[in-house]
């Protein structure tokens, strides 16, 4: 199918884009990489009457560090995938990105677009929650900083207002003695995953778990932050048994997978549990080696 007609604007500056957002509000849909929006328009699931193409706004394409890693919303996913600052300062993000779709799609799809789209099956919102990322949004009248947990408000919905754009994402560095891992399972490489988890594990000076974080994709109406499972690890020895307990709490008590044609809800729980153990083991290994060095 072909998209329904729309009016098209391609502003060169953020200021001009914000003027258009102020004028058209919800009618004026931002077009980032288009890798989610245009398929939806081809299906006519989405029929925006006005598109504001952000691709000419080069000021929104950057990766910098300034006490945290800062990524401009229009940075394409493949640029972050091969960036040494991302590898060094946000290794969890670095590990997650190659799981997004295929290389051809990552060449066009943006970091900000994936986050603003807020698909519960997506990798980046999960990474944002796990790292306590902050989103900078801007409108003609000013800017706001939002914590990831306040930004994602449900299925494909965010706290973005009608006249706002997401302009920057701030990823804090990992705390010391912290290991990380992102693992997922998809039917075929590049497909949306049936289950996936981002894990962080911080060790104390005795080598025990000090704190942990476990955030899941595709098992709720947004990223699922399994706080009870993570809390069960605090003060524990980082053993496989402890990881199994956490996996069980997360998969049985803290998620509500819907199941689909590729995986029943029960199977998604099963995969999430297995991936929890794998992610925690990997995160532990990394924490241990970082502590040793």
């Amino acid at each position: 199918m072909k998209p329904a007609p729309f009016e098209y604007f391609a502003p060169d500056t953020l200021e001009a884009a914000l003027d258009l957002k102020a004028k058209y509000g919800d009618e004026g849909k931002a077009l980032a990489g288009g890798q989610s929006l245009i398929p939806a328009m081809n299906f006519r699931v989405a029929q925006p009457s006005i598109l504001i193409d952000l691709n000419r706004i080069n000021e929104l394409r950057y990766i910098q560090k300034n006490g945290a890693l800062l990524i401009g919303a229009m940075t394409v996913q493949s640029a972050a995938e091969h960036d040494s600052l991302v590898a060094q300062h946000a290794p969890l993000l670095f590990e997650a990105i190659p799981n997004i779709a295929h290389s051809q799609i990552r060449n066009r799809g943006t970091i900000g677009g994936s986050i603003a789209h807020a698909d519960p099956a997506s990798e980046l919102p999960v990474v944002c929650i796990a790292l306590n990322a902050r989103m900078r949004t801007q409108s003609k009248t000013g800017e706001r900083w939002l914590e990831a947990k306040d930004f994602f408000t449900g299925l494909f919905t965010t706290a973005l207002q009608h006249d706002e754009l997401l302009v920057e994402i701030e990823f804090p560095y990992l705390p010391v003695n912290t290991g990380y891992a992102f693992t997922e399972i998809a039917r075929r490489h590049g497909d949306y995953a049936m289950a996936g988890v981002a894990a962080l594990l911080t060790l104390d000076s005795n080598g025990n778990c000090q704190q942990a974080r476990l955030v899941y994709l595709n098992v709720g109406d947004g990223p699922v932050d399994a706080t009870q499972a993570a809390a069960s690890l605090a003060g524990r020895k980082p053993t496989q048994e402890a990881f199994q307990v956490a996996a069980k709490i997360a998969s049985q008590k803290e998620m509500s997978p819907l199941g689909n044609v590729h995986a029943s809800a029960e199977y998604q729980r099963h995969l999430s549990a297995i991936l929890t153990e794998r992610s925690l083991a990997k995160a532990y290994e990394r924490a241990r080696t970082s502590q040793a060095s």
């Binding site: 199918m1 098209y8 391609a10 288009g34 890798q35 245009i38 398929p39 081809n42 299906f43 193409d53 691709n55 493949s78 779709a101 295929h102 290389s103 051809q104 799609i105 060449n107 066009r108």
Partner: peptide
């Protein structure tokens, strides 16, 4: 026409992209 099959892959400024999920104006 929704980005899944790759048949429409072309190079855009040297990089492979799906031409079915881009607009000609872009």
């Amino acid at each position: 026409e929704h980005g899944v099959c790759g048949a429409c892959t072309i190079l855009f400024d040297g990089k492979p992209v799906r031409s079915c999920i881009m607009f000609a104006v872009q």
